[in-house]
Simulated assay, not measured.
Amino acid sequence: MISAILKDKPTKLFIAITAFFVANALIAECIGGKIFSLEKLFGFEPVNFTILGYGGLSFSLTCGVLLWPLEFVITDIVNEYYGPKAVKRISYTAVALISYAFIMFYVSIHIPSADWWPASKKQDGIDDLQLAFNGIFGQGMWIIFGSLVAFLVSQLVDVFVFHKIKKITGEKKIWLRATGSTLVSQLIDSFIVLTIAFKFGNNWTWKQVIAVCCMNYMYKATVAILLTPVIYWAEKRIERYFGSELTMQMKKAAMGKI
């Protein structure tokens, strides 16, 4: 029985997708504490937008946004071949394991260090090693809570929109259901995480929340559109792996038609 499960192509692919999905989300959360300048990354001066009277806005983004777009690509692929229940399962799994990781980060920060553990690494420019460790792994609770809530809600919205569009378009226009669902869910994701982490957690004004949300969403929407060809590439590879007959069976099952 175990051998049959491990040889089953849809099962093997689902396990691989789930593992990458969870790992990618956890890495995104861990590196999210660093803010980078998108303009400087490409050799430009930071822009200076004004939105709702809040000026000085530029594309200063968390490093987590480098990986989060892949989560929505994976969500669309799982939606296409395994259905909404599978998307919810990997989303709940990711949230549970990320929560577990942050609990372990918290524990590791607060347990006493060994006497021989170096207090600093002067040669690397680190004066206080414990403080540096705390700064990397000790993200604020509002940010952690906000990112997890935003992630889960946006995933469920993505599932809903994706299948609503697919019921109308059928097997055609995968770009519409993939990109369309991502554009909607990314907007919700940006608004929720900023509201929880910075409105409730840091007393931002609503104008500031909306202004920064607009900047973040411009980046996310652009990336979502640019990643559309990846969906087509993945679909071709999966169909080649499964074969046309099994591919069609899985797509019908994902839509609840068999």
Rank of each mutant, 00 (worst) to 15 (best):
E45N: 01
I98V: 13
I188M: 10
P112V: 01
R240Y: 10
W68K: 04
V73I: 12
A197C: 07
I27A: 14
F151H: 09
P69M: 05
F160P: 00
A101S: 14
Y232C: 08
A224V: 05
I258A: 08
M250G: 03
G201D: 03
S108P: 06
R89M: 07
I165R: 01
M1I: 09
L129H: 09
F44D: 12
E239V: 14
A197Y: 05
K167I: 08
H110Y: 12
I17H: 00
T205L: 01
C63T: 09
R89I: 04
A114V: 10
P84D: 00
W68Q: 11
D8H: 13
K7E: 11
Y232S: 15
I143P: 04
A19D: 07
Y92A: 08
I231Y: 09
N134A: 14
F42K: 02
G256I: 02
F191M: 13
T62H: 07
M141Y: 11
M215G: 01
K199I: 03
C214W: 09
N202A: 14
K236P: 00
T179I: 05
V230T: 14
F133D: 10
E239Y: 04
F14S: 01
F151V: 07
G53T: 00
A132S: 08
I31G: 02
G201M: 04
K88G: 00
V193A: 06
L13D: 02
D189R: 03
K207M: 10
I31C: 05
M104Y: 11
Q186F: 03
T11P: 02
A16V: 11
G32S: 15
V193K: 05
I74T: 11
K12Y: 11
F20A: 14
P46F: 10
L129S: 10
H163W: 08
L194W: 06
G125L: 04
Y54L: 06
W68S: 11
S185H: 02
T222V: 07
K88V: 02
S190H: 07
Y219E: 05
S147K: 08
A178P: 00
I109C: 05
S58V: 11
N216Y: 15
F137D: 10
V193Y: 11
L26N: 10
V212T: 15
V184D: 07
P84V: 00
N216G: 12
V159W: 03
T228L: 04
S181R: 06
S60H: 08
P10G: 13
K172N: 12
G180N: 01
F145V: 14
M215Y: 00
G56T: 05
T169A: 13
L70Q: 01
A25E: 02
S60R: 10
L52R: 08
V149M: 15
M255Q: 13
S154R: 04
P118K: 01
A16M: 12
F14H: 00
A221F: 12
M255L: 14
H110V: 10
K85E: 05
V22H: 10
K122W: 08
G135L: 08
F145K: 02
W142G: 03
I231K: 00
I192L: 15
L6N: 10
A254K: 06
E239M: 09
F14N: 00
T50L: 04
F21K: 02
M1Q: 12
H110F: 15
I5T: 15
R240D: 14
